[in-house]
Simulated scan of single mutants.
Amino acid sequence: MKKINILLVCNAGMSTSLLIEKIEKAGTEKEIETTVDARPVDDVKNHLKEKDVILLGPQVRFKEKQIKALVKDQLPVAIIDMAAYGTMDGEKVLQQALSLVKD
């Protein structure tokens, strides 16, 4: 079974709770073991272990360079598609994460 461990980054770590559920549901439907952790942007450095990808909520897109510098190309970092985030499209966000992870 394929696995992916996603770190979602937002302002306070709370606005993504519904998105987490939808991403994990999409993973289950596709038989992908999906683990999603949401953290506030200022707490990212303490939660990098065992992550495969970091996805930033559109509201913290201005922190992308800072987070990329923190992970030093060890993990892919991307901004979640604004439409997918706004509609809480867990399947689309999961596909974005999977597309960023090297097999």
Results as ranks from 00 to 15, higher is better:
Met1Trp: 09
Met1Glu: 14
Lys3Arg: 13
Ile4Leu: 00
Ile6Pro: 03
Ile6Ser: 03
Ile6Val: 10
Leu7Glu: 02
Leu7Gln: 01
Val9Gly: 02
Cys10Phe: 04
Asn11Met: 10
Asn11Phe: 01
Ala12Tyr: 07
Gly13Arg: 03
Met14Thr: 08
Met14Gln: 06
Thr16Ala: 07
Thr16Trp: 02
Leu19Pro: 05
Glu21Leu: 03
Lys22Leu: 09
Ile23Glu: 01
Glu24Gly: 12
Glu24Tyr: 13
Lys25Met: 12
Lys25His: 09
Ala26Lys: 02
Thr28Pro: 05
Glu29Asp: 15
Glu29Leu: 15
Lys30Ala: 13
Glu33Cys: 08
Thr34Arg: 10
Thr35Asp: 13
Val36Ser: 08
Asp37Thr: 14
Arg39Gln: 14
Arg39His: 07
Val41Ala: 07
Val41Ile: 11
Asp42Gly: 15
Asp43Ala: 10
Val44Pro: 05
Lys45Met: 09
Asn46Cys: 05
His47Phe: 12
His47Thr: 14
His47Tyr: 15
Glu50Arg: 13
Lys51Ala: 12
Asp52Ser: 07
Val53Ala: 05
Ile54Gln: 02
Leu55Ile: 02
Leu55Arg: 00
Gly57Gln: 01
Gly57Glu: 01
Pro58Thr: 08
Phe62Gly: 03
Lys63Ala: 12
Lys65Gln: 06
Ile67Cys: 11
Ala69Asn: 15
Val71Ser: 05
Lys72Trp: 10
Lys72Leu: 15
Gln74Met: 09
Leu75Cys: 07
Pro76Thr: 10
Ala78Gln: 03
Ile79Asp: 01
Ile80Phe: 11
Met82Leu: 15
Met82Cys: 08
Ala83Lys: 14
Ala83Trp: 12
Ala84Gln: 11
Gly86Trp: 07
Thr87Asp: 05
Asp89Asn: 15
Asp89His: 12
Glu91Ile: 02
Lys92Asp: 06
Leu94Tyr: 09
Leu94Cys: 08
Ala97Pro: 00
Ala97Glu: 02
Ala97Gln: 03
Leu98Lys: 04
Lys102Glu: 15
Asp103Tyr: 07
